[in-house]
Design a protein around this nucleic acid. Structure first.
Lengths: 222, 222
DNA sequence: CGTTGCGTTGATCTCTATCAAAAAAGGTGG
DNA sequence: CCACCTTTTTTGATAGAGATCAACGCAACG
């Protein structure tokens, strides 16, 4: 794996020159984690942020009684916990690999000096922040106003791609993870899927949801 | 309207010093728009972003067949279109005032050159984002992992002040509004309050909640 | 006084979490 | 390829939290 090349392909560093990337490489490290391994925990001091090279990690919250709610899943090229390090505080949620993954670890001191040197970097980071902020607002609205069926309908429609005339949603995460992302549990997700199948709006075959009736499904998400 | 004061109250600029706010003020303008007036259109080059001082604006898209779809409504204190600015893109959607409104207009070039000159400003803005995101994470946790009774307990404890030895929470909003803040409806809030009273943890007199047993109440919020 | 809006209380119903267990889907090693 | 074990997914039955609907007390106000 060529790290320079990878970094040049990321949103954050794609305008860097080869030389600048070389400098950057001196201040980062590579972290390999197996599925299920904790990368950081809520409350820990936020000492670094990460970029996913390969695999997937989830950001999640645990309630006192052990219930888990996934806030985000981050895949290749995405940054993780970059917001936490500016508050000079703790990670507000925990992070765990849900696949065997490789990450770039960027310590916070380094990003400070980097930004001083390349203020453009700040613009990129801020653009990422504002996007994430909007995601949160949408997610909160969904959580508090919509029921599971419409949240699922939303998810399916938003994550589907057109393939010779049909909308298909690849289930890139396990249903367990999807349930947690939607703020529910696997049993309930399973029932919601069964409901939509029974209404003939979707069908499922080898880890793909085929959206048979996008119009009616859209009605469901209100 | 004192603009400096307003800017200091926004999450983006609240860690700016007086001097920095002055710098900022030189690079912005105030825009008053009447209800129904277009502020920017989808596809235009994104030349500025906005913060709502008063009123409300909607972000919307027009579908090919002319139907309008509102993506979001922004009210006081909220930022509009800043992702497009930081990304140097075109506006991805249109914006129109749905009430008579007053906005701060921040041109891209101005904020860019300001940050290039004073990279510290970027840090302060980013820490603003960071805090805001953190708030959202906390709120999401509350909504999805805690029940009404603990959300109410949280609210009471966080909004109470000590007054000669007793914790008192002034109900500055109507119960209707508080219910909505807590993500529920007045009936349910009323029952939750009744429950806490019956447990002898709180009592109420002329729009004040007296917290009789902060320790036990804290246990409730877990 | 009647009206209007807020807050409380009661009865009911719906959604979703929980618990339990079966079924399906992956590995793994022989 | 098969038997075995683990993990994921599905299905069923039940219980609980909170929304909904309806009614009533109460204060503010014309």
């Amino acid at each position: 794996m060529d790290i320079s090349k990878f970094l040049l392909s990321t949103f954050l560093f794609n305008s860097f020159s080869e030389k600048e990337i070389d400098l950057l490489i001196n201040s980062i490290s590579i972290k390999k984690v197996n599925k299920g391994v904790q990368i950081f925990s809520e409350g820990q001091e936020a000492s670094a942020f990460f970029i996913v090279i390969s695999g997937k990690v989830k950001i999640y919250k645990l309630s006192p009684d052990g219930k888990e709610h996934t806030l985000h899943i981050h895949g290749k090229g995405e940054t993780v916990a970059e917001a936490a390090i500016f508050d000079s505080m703790d990670y507000p949620a925990s992070c765990m690999a849900i696949e065997n993954s490789v990450l770039v670890r960027i310590p916070r001191e380094n990003i400070f000096s980097l930004i001083r040197k390349y203020p453009e970097l700040a613009f990129k980071m801020m653009s990422g922040y504002s996007r994430r902020l909007r995601q949160f607002v949408l997610k909160m609205e969904e959580l508090s106003l919509k029921d599971i069926k419409s949240r699922l309908a939303d998810y399916l429609l938003e994550n589907s791609v057109e393939k010779n005339g049909t909308l298909i949603c690849n289930l890139v995460y396990s249903k367990k993870e999807i349930a947690s992302l939607l703020g529910t549990i696997p049993e309930t997700l399973s029932r919601a899927l069964a409901f939509l199948k029974q209404k003939n709006l979707i069908s499922e075959e080898n880890n793909r949801i085929i959206i048979k009736d996008p119009e009616k499904l859209k009605l469901f998400s209100e």
